[in-house]
Simulated scan of single mutants.
Amino acid sequence: MRGVLVSTPARPLRLVALCGALALVASCGAAGSGEEDGGGLPGAPTGVTAAAGSATSVHVMWNATARAEAYEVYRGTRKVKEVPGSEHMVDVTRLRPATVYVFTVRARDADGRIGPPSREVRARTPAAAADDRRAPTRPSAPRGRTAGSRAVQLAWSASTDDRGVVSYDVHQGGTKIHSVGGSRTATVVTGLRPGTSYSFTVRARDAAGNVSPASRAVRLTTPGADDGRDTAPTVFRATGRHEDGAYYVDLSWVPPRVDGEVAEYEIRLDGRRVTSLVFGGSAPRDRATYSFYVGRAAGVTHRVRVRAMLPDGTWGGFSAERTVTTGAGR
C-alpha cells in the first residue's frame, strides 16, 4: 500500500472490494482523480466508501481529488477527521455500537477553499460483544495474481470467530492500507508500480476490535519496467559549504507526491550509500533539507543524489544527480 510525483501525479494506492471473486462493487468506483469544477475549486471526492471496522469504528476511503491539499471527513454535519492531501482513507473511531452513521468527504485546496461534499455513504457498526477477548483465527490460504502492471488481485479463506468477523485489514509491507467487510474475502489493489515486488498480508478483526495474527505473506511482482521518474524527489539541489575548516554539502529537494507520508531517504555520494535519513514526527511535504560532512580537502568533486522509501515499502526512483566541488567559489 504502501500515498502521491513530479509533473505527473502518481496513481494513488487504492483497494476496491470484490463481490464474489472478481466483480467490482459499484459503490467503490474506480481509482482515479476526483471531479473538477470550472471555478478552480477541488472537485467532490469520488469513490467514497464506508465499512465498519469494529463495533466502535468505521473505515472511510475515497479517490484522490485534483488540487486537494487536505481532506475533511464529516459524520453527518460534524467534521470528525482531517487528513493531508496525500492520504485517501481514515478510521473514524469512538462510535456507538449497532448504529448507522452517514459520512461525506470534502477536499480543501492550498488557499483554504473547500470544495463540494461527496455523495453520502452509510455504515452500520455491529453490536458490541460483551467481554470478548478472543481474536479471530488468522486468514488462511492467501493467494494473489497480478492484473496488469499496476494492479493485483488478492483472495483468502475466511477466518472464524466466536462472535463473528467484522472486517479484514489488508497490509502492504508493514502498513495497513485498507479494510474490507467481514463477508468479503477478495480485493483488488490498484495504483501499483510496474516491475516492483510487493508483499501483502491480511488480518481479521471482530466487533470488539480483537485482531488475528497476520496471514502468510503473498509476494507478487508486477510486470513491466519502471524508470522511477514518477517516484523520484524533484527540484534537487546540492551546494558546498565551508565551516570551521571542514566542507559540507547542503541538500534540498521536493518530496515525491505519493499516496502516504515519505519519512525515509537514502543519500548516495559518488555512487555509494552515505547515509539513511529518517525524519521523526511530521515528515516534510513541501521541501526537505539535509547537510552532511564530506571532509577537509578543497578541490574534491562529489556526485550526489537521493531517493525516497515509499509508503508501500519500496524504494522510489533516484533524483537527478548533482555535482559539488569543495572550495569552489571561495
Rank of each mutant, 00 (worst) to 15 (best):
G195I: 10
P142D: 13
G112Q: 06
R113Q: 15
V100N: 00
G173D: 01
A155N: 11
F103H: 05
D206L: 10
D132L: 03
P97R: 05
A204I: 14
S215D: 09
R205V: 15
D169C: 08
Y168R: 12
A208L: 05
T221C: 03
T137L: 08
Y168H: 15
I177Y: 02
T146P: 08
A155W: 14
D169I: 08
R193N: 11
V166N: 10
A207K: 05
R205N: 14
D109W: 09
S199E: 09
V188P: 00
R216E: 13
D109N: 15
T196G: 05
P194D: 10
V189C: 02
V165A: 00
S199V: 07
A130M: 05
S215Y: 08
D161T: 11
A208M: 08
S212W: 06
S183R: 14
D132C: 11
G164Y: 07
Q153C: 03
S183W: 13
V170R: 01
A214K: 06
A155C: 06
G148N: 10
V152P: 01
S183K: 13
N210G: 12
R122I: 00
R193H: 10
R108K: 15
V100Q: 00
A123H: 03
T190Y: 00
V202E: 07
A141Y: 09
T185P: 09
S149A: 15
G195Y: 10
P117F: 13
P117V: 14
T137Y: 08
P126R: 11
G164R: 06
G115D: 15
A135C: 05
T221P: 04
A123L: 02
R134H: 05
V188I: 05
R122T: 02
S179R: 15
T221W: 02
R219Y: 01
D109V: 12
P126C: 07
V189E: 04
D206Y: 10
V202S: 08
R122Y: 04
P97T: 07
D132W: 02
A123K: 03
G209T: 09
F200G: 00
A98I: 00
Q172A: 09
A130E: 10
D132G: 05
D131I: 04
D132K: 06
P142N: 13
T190M: 01
D206P: 08
G148Q: 11
R133K: 07
D161F: 05
H178E: 10
D162S: 07
G195P: 09
V170D: 02
V166H: 08
S183E: 14
S159W: 13
R150D: 13
V165C: 02
S179T: 14
A128F: 06
V100K: 00
G209R: 04
V180C: 05
R133T: 11
Y198M: 02
D132V: 03
P139F: 14
D169L: 12
Y168W: 14
G164I: 11
T196W: 06
T99Y: 01
A147V: 13
T160E: 14
S167Y: 11
S179N: 09
R143A: 15
T160Y: 02
G115S: 15
K176Y: 02
T222P: 03
V202N: 08
R108V: 15
A98G: 01
T125H: 01
R193W: 10
R203D: 03
G148V: 06
